[in-house]
């Protein structure tokens, strides 16, 4: 069972490669972001454990002492995330190609993705529009909930209403993300244009909502389960501990979460590839 889950049908190298690149980039950014902090902590006998010492006082002082660094760091992080998103917009066909086909080398899949960049950008634009609509729907729902809450007395009901906008907007955004994945799979494995792939994706989600939507939710849950497991482990081992064994265990667990996330995405696109191939066979 576990072996079956771990297997990606020969696509493990890509999973490892992407995870290592993401982690490498993250480490570079983390080193840059914490440079001023680590300089201060390196002079302090407690080192990073000082962050947990003295009831948050040292952490508070660090935050205040390096207040000037937070804005440029947040800016740098924002730029890198935007660049990362841009790169994966162009490479957005890579995982669908790899998922739908066995034996394709990653660089060929990447080249195919770049070749189909206009289609992928078109899909990204449609998805962007969808996200904007989800945001607007969330905003409108929040406004309605706020007006509704003004007439309510029960604080729990008011809190629940306050979450309505987030819930609706979040659910819609998740559905848009799911649709975007399915549309990319259709575009890359069936050679469809952005508009055709959009329609095919919507049709597939409508035709087999339980299968596609449930699978999307399932794979998404697995991703979050990894994050939750790492958090639980941190709680279990006491994340504030300075014991080398605890530090090492948590670092390993957190890196496995990133690897697991990339792996799950690949599994999802392999599953989608199978569905799209079946759909193509039916159509032909």
């Amino acid at each position: 069972m576990i072996r079956r889950w771990l297997s990606t049908g020969g696509r493990g190298g890509v999973v490892w490669g992407v995870a290592v690149i993401e982690l490498g980039l993250a480490w570079l950014l983390a080193l840059a972001a914490t440079a001023s902090l680590t300089g201060t902590l390196a002079r302090h006998p407690l080192g990073a454990i000082g962050l947990h010492a003295q009831g948050g006082r040292l952490l508070g002082e660090l935050v205040a002492l390096h207040a000037h660094a937070w804005e440029p760091m947040a800016g740098l992080l924002g730029v890198v995330i935007v660049a990362h998103a841009g790169a994966w917009m162009l490479l957005g066909g890579m995982f669908p190609v790899l998922g739908a086909t066995t034996g394709v080398r990653w660089h060929r899949a990447a080249a195919e993705s770049l070749r189909r960049a206009p289609t992928l950008l078109g899909l990204a634009a449609i998805a962007g529009l969808g996200y904007a609509l989800a945001g607007f729907a969330g905003y409108a729902a929040a406004g309605w909930a706020g007006r509704e809450a003004a007439h309510r007395l029960d604080v729990r009901a008011i809190t629940a209403l306050g979450g309505t906008g987030w819930l609706l907007g979040g659910a819609l955004a998740w559905a848009i993300g799911l649709w975007h994945d399915v549309a990319r799979a259709h575009a890359m494995s069936r050679g469809r244009s952005a508009m055709q792939a959009s329609g095919s994706a919507a049709l597939q989600m409508a035709r087999e909502p339980l299968a596609t939507v449930a699978a999307g939710a399932g794979f998404g849950l697995v991703t979050w389960a990894y994050v939750g497991a790492a958090a639980a482990l941190a709680g279990l081992l006491d994340a504030r501990s300075s014991r080398p064994g605890v530090v090492a265990a948590l670092l390993v667990a957190q890196h496995l979460v990133v690897l697991g996330r990339v792996h799950t995405r690949m599994k999802w696109f392999v599953w989608l590839g199978g569905r799209v191939t079946a759909a193509r066979a039916r159509a032909e």
Partner: peptide, 21 residues
Amino acid sequence: PVLPLVGRVAYWVALALGSVG
């Protein structure tokens, strides 16, 4: 002793990058 700090920040950055990956 500062390694755990960098590692934890890297983890959260990796999660942020993964969300647009």
